[in-house]
Design a protein around this nucleic acid. Structure first.
Length: 349
DNA sequence: AATTTAACCAACCGCCGAGCG
DNA sequence: GCGCTCGGCGGTTGGTTAAAT
């Protein structure tokens, strides 16, 4: 009936492996092959359980493992595969020779995921998420360009996340619903509405805005990623157009979505460009020093959407790009005008 | 120089499907 | 068919190192 227990964990060593243990394990496997992981530790003279040995071998000691930092192309592949496969690290690792699932998982969680979040991309759905955008950083950076002298100490009130959310909601509202926007203006000047009340109100507006975005994602097919659905948003969707750089970003995603619409396997130019723009840290055109490279106005859909390769060759060399360069590329030269609607905030800043 | 914070990553934990007896 | 282990997988933890204060 059944098999005998894998191992009695009592008395077995845990924690980091010593070089001696590594040597024992490597020597044994090179001589006999991995065979049965349950009996291996005993045969190899190790006070470890088989599971620990297997992990150590597959994640670290295996001779075909490639160590060191991930290349630009590898990052691109990971993002592309993740957008298709999700957190199937082993499946992703199978397509990246020399990389383990554990290594890819770690790299995703410590590097790529954070970068996507910073650029307003949902790392789960790969869809643009306005609520993830670090508006504080964007506005702060913009202020530095407007007034470099103020860069060391931006006005704290302007960097208040709540106020920035209000700003975003107001900007959106002005375009989407002028009547409601006018009503909000009245609220601003209404002495009976406190700033905190207004913030709550505006946050609710923003959440409605995001909900609309999410509903668009949910309603158009279970297997279609969020970035595809984003293309269905109106071209003149308010908030994006109030800030030129974000507007351009929105259009780029729409172009990307259009490129994917007949090619949901992720191999189209749109998908390629989408992945590249994520790796660039630019979140589309945000922070792109040379907008001509990847700018794709919606008004001219026939315009060639840059592929990952020409993007790489054109503006961001793959193999020579360091982490710092990727980051600075992302944050450099953010220039946009603060929309008029934001002037309302002056009243309570 | 000391302390705190952030980043990184190896290793562990727990779950699951396949297969054995 | 049932109970059990193995091997594989994804999520999480915790130790170490680097950077910032």
């Amino acid at each position: 009936m059944g098999r005998t227990p894998c191992c009695d964990k009592n008395g077995l060593k845990k924690g980091p492996w010593t070089t001696e243990e590594d040597h024992k394990l490597t020597s044994y496997i090179q001589l006999h092959g991995p065979g049965n992981w349950r009996t291996l530790p005993k045969n190899a003279g190790l006070q470890r359980c088989g599971k620990s040995c297997r992990l150590r071998w597959t994640n670290y000691l295996r001779p075909d493992i490639k160590r060191g930092r991930f290349a630009f192309e590898e990052e691109e592949t990971i993002i592309q595969l993740h957008s298709i496969l999700g957190n199937k690290w082993s499946a992703i690792a199978a397509r990246l020779p020399g990389r383990t699932d554990n290594e890819i998982k770690n790299y995703w969680n410590t590097h790529i995921r954070k970068r996507l979040l910073r650029n307003g991309i949902d790392p789960v759905t790969h869809a643009p998420r306005l609520d993830l955008l670090d508006l504080s950083a964007i506005l702060g950076n913009a202020l530095c360009h407007v007034n470099p002298a103020a860069s060391s100490q931006p006005p704290p009130s302007l960097l208040n996340p709540d106020l920035l959310r209000v700003a975003a909601a107001l900007a959106s509202l002005q375009q989407e619903n002028p009547e409601l926007y006018h009503q909000q203006q009245q609220n601003l000047t209404d002495s009976q509405t406190t700033p905190s009340q207004l913030i709550q109100q505006q946050q609710a507006d923003l959440e409605r805005f995001l909900e609309l975005n999410n509903n668009n994602d949910n309603n158009s097919g279970s297997q279609v990623s969020g970035k595809d659905n984003f293309a269905s948003l109106p071209n003149d969707f308010g908030f994006w157009n109030t800030i030129p750089e974000l507007s351009e970003n929105c259009r780029s995603f729409q172009s990307c979505g259009a490129g994917l619409s007949g090619n949901n396997n992720g191999n189209g130019n749109g998908a390629d460009w989408y992945q590249s723009s994520l790796i660039s840290g630019g979140g589309g055109n945000i922070g792109n020093a040379d907008s001509s490279v990847i700018s794709t106005p919606l008004s001219s859909p026939a315009q060639v959407t840059p592929t990952s390769s020409n993007f790489v060759n054109g503006s961001l060399s793959a193999s020579t790009t360091t982490e710092d360069e990727r980051e600075s590329y992302c944050s450099s030269l953010l220039k946009f005008e603060i929309p008029e609607s934001l002037e309302l905030l002056d009243d309570f800043m």
